[in-house]
């Protein structure tokens, strides 16, 4: 574990806590893409298939459980919570994410660490996570005003993988024969997809104005 990876995990955890806070405090999920939340639930379930077979550390197991449980809880709230579900932007959250799932799985069948069920699903979860934010970014563009907590959620969700890129660089420089080509390539694509959001987020922070993504 290095400081970059710890910062990445804590930033990721913070983003999830911010989203839970927004939904709990406002009893609303306006501006939040349920499709992105469902994609993240799929990402965590298929990435952590080794949850019960490979014990890495208490921290690792704990965080995996937190990520799976929180993503499922958020999807449950947005689908079934009697109050929260009413604020879901159903008519704006229309990204056809089936193609993202299909393309990620097809790529995982071609490019993986090892041709085994666990490794193909692991690569699938890595590729899917890279594009999972797309429905959320599209929703932000369509729903003009973005509330602070939702903006902060997306910001920290994008920042966490940037910390992981620093972690991979650090490990590549300090550990012999360390490579993470699949996660590294996918992580760069994932972080790049946030580029324009980061730009408009910085502008809104600098001008102390409401975050606004151009349609």
């Amino acid at each position: 574990m290095n400081v970059f990876r710890l910062a990445g995990d804590m930033t990721h955890l913070l983003s999830i806590l911010l989203l839970l806070l927004k939904i709990y405090a406002t009893k609303s999920c306006s501006g939040v893409s349920r499709k992105t939340q469902e994609l993240y639930a799929i990402v965590f379930i298929f990435r952590y298939l080794d949850l019960f077979t490979d014990f890495i550390s208490v921290y690792n197991t704990f965080m995996k459980v937190v990520f799976i449980a929180s993503s499922l809880a958020i999807v449950w709230c947005m689908r079934f919570h009697p109050v929260v579900r009413r604020s879901y932007d159903r008519e704006l959250d229309t990204f056809r994410y089936f193609f993202l799932v299909g393309a990620s799985f097809a790529l995982a069948l071609i490019w993986h660490e090892k041709f085994s069920v666990q490794e193909v699903f692991w690569a699938f979860s890595i590729y899917l996570e890279a594009v999972a934010i797309l429905p959320q970014l599209v929703l932000l563009q369509r729903s003009g005003n973005v509330d602070n907590l939702t903006g902060q959620y997306v910001f920290f969700l994008g920042a966490y993988r940037a910390f992981y890129i620093l972690n991979w660089i650090y490990r590549y420089l300090t550990e012999p024969r360390f490579t993470r080509w699949i996660a590294g390539t996918s992580g760069v694509v994932q972080t790049a997809l946030y580029a324009d959001f980061f730009y408009y987020y910085f502008i809104s922070w600098k001008n102390n104005s409401k975050l606004k993504l151009p349609a």
């Binding site: 990876r5 995990d9 990721h12 080794d50 077979t53 490979d54 890495i56 690792n60 965080m63 995996k64 990520f67 660490e113 692991w122 992981y164 972690n167 993470r180 996660a183």
Partner: peptide, 10 residues
């Protein structure tokens, strides 16, 4: 197993 430790990251 050593193999299992491969995915030591989240």
């Amino acid at each position: 197993s050593a193999e299992g430790k491969y995915h030591d990251e989240l």
